[in-house]
Design a protein around this nucleic acid. Structure first.
Lengths: 241, 241
DNA sequence: ACAAAAGTGTTGCTGGTACACCCATGT
DNA sequence: ACATGGGTGTACCAGCAACACTTTTGT
């Protein structure tokens, strides 16, 4: 502790004394979708010799003239053709030996897309949707990143109305409930689920019915962001330890 | 979209094609303390010409042989002499022009320390505690980082029992309540607060009383992590939109 | 005696949970 | 007719919010 005053500090050290700029920075996107009653993630087969044949997240290096949000959005657009998807930074991973090419720091982004929208685009043959529950190993530290983002997703859908990004604009209450159940791995009582969702005021009745369904069709709803804006931030109290 | 197949991907591109390693990576620690009924943050005066005289977070560049958690812990140890403080990654900031020395990506860490422990250490004369509410401008994008970490703190103390890191090992219920109130900026009913905290089972009665207090002394308690382990993860249900 | 904060219970309200029956549609 | 899921209401319970008086200590 005696040398405390001599330690360099990036915020107080003149430019000419700054250490070398020797790190690479990348983004990796954990792109979740919902299909066939399961949560899926979009992966690509790694071509790196060290991880030949293993699955990897979609990522890219950061360009010199863009920030991380921009880079992750660019990756999503280039790979899926989608725009305006939900995209949010989750965590940065920096283990010393996490990348065989050298010191690459990566920032993980959580993305939610509608698998149907994606399927309308020209697809790279090397990209595939994988059931999250069936993935055991991945290239690099990507399994750790996936697990971290899945946990973030579970937490986040209970705090903010982002789950609608996984569904069509119009959806039935059954579909909505099933996505919740798939993400959280638990089941809800149907009646209580409906009550709860209605009381939030977030559901807009589209006055349409399901079609192509082999039973009594349900009503279709859409997410009403305006109603959510009113109720959000409604007392942040209640110390929920 | 036609060139999708030609886009490089850091996870699939062979090593010899990897873009240059030209970024600097740093950590910045938002070190919160509680003193005089207020939340404080530990800052240093910036010596960089561009930000001469402005206040800056404590940070350092990442060393080649360490990860970000290690770097942030090192900064804390070197600057405050403390060990085993609460320390957690919050977010990575990457605006293109955020640092005058070049392309420096920084990862913000939230740290909670007991101001009294810190005061026992040899202090750098250039470090000072500032009331969070009085800070208006800072060097770099540090005001943005501070605001982000303060928001994270508000959220986090309602989800996990981390607030005890701001207090002595033994504390009175009044002290505990006042820290909550200082962080959240709201007031609680004293009776309800006590009830709520007791029902969590997290408070261990130390069978001691406050001293040096100019009124009837209160009982002292400590945080019981074992009790918390039992109740945490107690149903993650209740879609709290 | 006074000031300051400790300590303590009850009531009403709100929201969560558990639970069962009839209805509409397709086969 | 049967299978599948849509749509609805009630009763109980737990947790939160509002609220006032007595006790202990220091000055």
């Amino acid at each position: 502790m005696e040398e405390v005053l001599q330690k360099p500090n990036i915020n107080t050290t003149p430019i000419e004394l700054m250490p070398d700029f020797r790190f690479a920075q990348s983004v990796d996107c954990v792109i979740f979708g919902y299909d066939g009653g399961e949560i899926k993630v979009l992966l690509i087969e790694s071509d790196l010799p060290a991880y030949k044949g293993q699955w990897s997240l979609l990522g890219d290096v950061l360009h010199p003239d863009e920030d991380l949000d921009h880079a992750s959005y660019r990756v999503l657009q280039e790979r899926t053709g989608l725009s305006n998807m939900f995209l949010e930074q989750v965590k940065t991973f920096s283990a010393v030996n996490r990348h065989p090419a050298g010191r690459v720091i990566t920032t993980a982004y959580l993305a939610l897309v509608n698998v149907k929208d994606y399927q309308l685009q020209r697809q790279e043959h090397s990209l595939h949707w994988h059931s999250v529950s069936e993935i055991t190993t991945m290239a690099f530290d990507h399994k750790l990143i996936l697990d971290t983002c899945l946990l973030a997703l579970k937490k986040k859908i209970q705090e903010e109305p982002i789950i609608f990004n996984l569904l069509d604009k119009k959806f039935s209450l059954r579909q909505l409930q099933q996505v919740f159940e798939a993400v959280l791995g638990i089941e809800f009582d149907r009646r209580n689920f409906r009550k709860k969702l209605f009381t939030t005021g977030m559901l807009k009745d589209e006055h349409e019915m399901e079609t192509d369904v082999h039973h009594r069709p349900g009503k279709l709803y859409s997410f009403n962001p305006a109603a959510y804006e009113k109720i959000k931030g409604n007392s942040f109290v209640g110390l929920q330890f």
